[in-house]
Measured scan of single mutants.
Amino acid sequence: TYYTVKSGDTLNKIAAQYGVSVANLRSWNGISGDLIFVGQKLIVKKG
């Protein structure tokens, strides 16, 4: 599943929405910090 980042989104918010961990979101998307951008597509695997 792909999720497109919207204004106001955070990794924590997206992780909670999908029932996954922030660590997994980072791993699946090659993100090291907490910086995400509006319009960015993130890979999300269902929890």
Rank of each mutant, 00 (worst) to 15 (best):
S21T: 14
T10D: 12
Q17M: 15
G33H: 14
K13A: 15
L11R: 00
L11M: 07
L25E: 00
N12P: 15
R26F: 04
Y3V: 07
L35C: 07
K46T: 12
D34P: 06
A15Q: 02
K45F: 12
S7M: 10
V20A: 09
R26Q: 12
S7A: 09
S27Y: 14
Q17R: 10
S21D: 15
N12R: 14
G30N: 14
L42G: 00
G33V: 07
S27Q: 14
I14V: 09
S21Q: 06
F37L: 09
K41L: 14
L42P: 00
V38C: 05
K6T: 11
V38N: 07
A15Y: 01
V22H: 04
Y2I: 13
I31M: 11
K6A: 11
G39V: 01
V20Q: 09
I14E: 00
K45I: 13
G39M: 04
D34N: 07
L35D: 15
N24H: 10
K45A: 13
V20M: 07
I14P: 00
K13H: 12
V44H: 02
S21H: 07
V22S: 08
V5E: 00
G30T: 12
L11C: 03
I31T: 05
V44C: 03
S7V: 09
V5D: 00
F37V: 11
I43K: 07
W28N: 03
Q40F: 04
A16Q: 13
G8D: 14
S27L: 15
Y18L: 09
G47W: 13
V5Y: 03
V20E: 09
I36F: 06
K6V: 13
R26I: 15
L11F: 05
I14Y: 01
S21E: 13
G19N: 09
G39L: 03
I43W: 11
K6E: 15
G47I: 09
F37P: 05
G47H: 13
S27K: 14
G8F: 06
T1M: 11
I14R: 00
S27C: 05
V5G: 02
K41I: 08
N12Q: 14
G39P: 02
V44W: 03
K45Q: 11
I14D: 00
L42D: 00
I14K: 00
T1F: 14
K45T: 12
S27N: 14
K45M: 10
D34E: 15
V22Y: 04
L25Q: 00
I31F: 08
Y3K: 02
V5C: 05
S32G: 13
L35T: 12
R26V: 12
Y3A: 05
A23I: 10
T1L: 11
S21Y: 05
K6D: 06
D9L: 01
A23G: 11
K6G: 10
G8S: 06
G19L: 13
S7F: 08
K13M: 13
K45H: 14
K46E: 14
W28P: 01
L42V: 06
D34A: 07
D9F: 01
G47N: 15
A16L: 15
T1S: 11
T1C: 05
L11V: 08
D9M: 03
N12H: 10
N29W: 01
I14S: 00
I14A: 01
T1Y: 14
N24P: 02
Y2R: 08
A23H: 11
D9A: 02
Y2F: 12
K13D: 14
I31V: 15
V44A: 04
V38S: 09
Y3R: 03
F37N: 12
V44N: 02
K46Q: 15
A15R: 02
I31C: 03
N24E: 14
N29C: 01
I36A: 04
R26M: 15
G33Q: 11
V20D: 03
K6P: 01
D9W: 01
V38A: 11
T4V: 12
Q40H: 05
K6H: 08
A15H: 02
F37H: 12
N29E: 00
Y2S: 10
I14G: 00
G39Y: 03
G19S: 09
Y18G: 03
A23S: 08
F37M: 10
G39K: 04
K46R: 12
Q40P: 01
S7E: 15
S27A: 11
R26C: 06
G39T: 04
S7P: 09
L42Q: 00
I36N: 02
N29T: 02
A15W: 01
G30R: 13
V38E: 15
G39Q: 04
G33F: 09
S7T: 11
G8Y: 06
K45G: 10
T4M: 10
A16C: 05
K6S: 15
N24R: 09
S32Q: 10
L11P: 03
V22T: 10
W28M: 07
G8E: 08
L35M: 15
T10S: 12
N29M: 01
S27R: 11
A23V: 08
S27F: 09
N24Y: 08
V22C: 04
I14H: 00
I43A: 07
I14T: 01
N24I: 11
W28E: 04
